[in-house]
Design a binder for these strands. Sequence first.
RNA 1: GGCAGGUUGCCCGAGCGGCCAAUGGGAGCGGGCUGUAAACCCGUCGGUGAAAGCCUCCGAAGGUUCGAAUCCUUCACCUGCCA
Length: 434
Amino acid sequence: MRKDARVTNSTILDELLWRELIAQSTDLGALQAAADAGPMTLYCGFDPTAPSLHLGNLAQILTVRRFQQAGHRPLALVGGATGLIGDPKMTGERQLNPREIVEDWVRRIRGQLESFYDFSGTHAAVMVNNYDWTEGVSVLEFLRDIGKHFSVNRMLDREAVAARLAKEGISYTEFSYQLLQSFDYLQLFRQFGCTLQTGGSDQWGNITAGVDLIRRVESASVHALTTPLLTKSDGTKFGKTESGTIWLDPGLTSPYAFFQFWLNADDSDVPTLLRTFSFSARPRIEELFSATVERPHERAAQRALAQELTALVHGEAEQRAAESAGFALFGQGDLAALSADALTAALLEAPNGVVDPGEIVDGVLPAVEDLLVRCGLASSRGQARRTVSEGGASLNNERVPNEGHSPMVGDLLHGEWLVLRRGKRTVGGIRVEK
RNA sequence: GGCAGGUUGCCCGAGCGGCCAAUGGGAGCGGGCUGUAAACCCGUCGGUGAAAGCCUCCGAAGGUUCGAAUCCUUCACCUGCCA
């Protein structure tokens, strides 16, 4: 066994093991042997169920990326076909999305995937879309060649399916999902020699169904590997905050908000987050573990995560902008000391709104409640009023004393900005258009 | 197919003719402590409004009544028991 992780194939499994990224797998020994034998081709698919990928998907992407860095070849699969059908979920039948929408989402997700894998070099990634090999298959062909190998009895065992049967039922469409995903694995095995599929542990049933299909049809033994479902230490779902899902699309979750998400991670989640998302070497990660235990207030691990992942997802420049914005807005108070450029850059990262000069009467701007709503810090005037009356609103780092308070022109920083804050860590900007 | 019960605010769940925008818990939000954490304590929690008030709301549509989340009818869905 060679020592260099970049070159040695088998160390990838050791790496995943210490990172606790293996929830389930087919015979690990066999997988290890396959990885040792040379570059493997693996895939992990992403269905277009939203306009963007999110942090949960990122965990999967990064696992595949680790394989690529270890010298294996990833296939980046976008589920243009499976996205039209929908994987059964516990809670109920999905609503089918219009084809044009799915096509749009496929484009967006494909674009996102492109930035995480290396599409050049000796083990270049390949982008594939299962729509390409599914659209032309006839129903009869599919039922005879693929469907015949599936036992409904076994399909019924699947957790989501069983839950649905016990409740409101499941359409034939969704029930068929597993066949499509299995068909994908078979296709990729035939076309690219793909012998490993990874995914979240909720995908175990779908993945092994593909493994079985390949065994029956091709008499070949291929592998499956799943990663643990990411949960926070308090058991709640990971990757969601008060404000919702953390998306990779900067239009849906700004780089600033993305950075803040990591910076605000619970201490108790730090080990899992570092193991799952960071590409730092083990000694560095362990150093951050102990830093969190010994000097938690410094939040070195949270900052390291924020820096590394914001840079990875949004690029170095955006990462620096997001971090500087945080420093500016959460710094030691004196906002007036910030340069106009720094302030503008910071506030453009945060949620912000606009006041038209025509709204300023005798040097008085609209009331703080209006401004809170306008920059998105409050969802209604009622909520804004509540925030102010609870003492949770501040203007240029000064607590807003009472309801109905209106800023004056003299309060404008550099003649154009107001910094609004709701609670301790939600900051927004108001800009007076010139 | 027959009989019985259910459908309440983001979720769970009380209410069973007026005092109900609707008890309670959870989530969320704010304050305090702290580290732009967690836990904990306190407050808050439909919209609008400074307030009084007004508007919307208790599966859907009708009806009874001065007045309905609460009673009646029909419809939809869910749950038990019997076939």
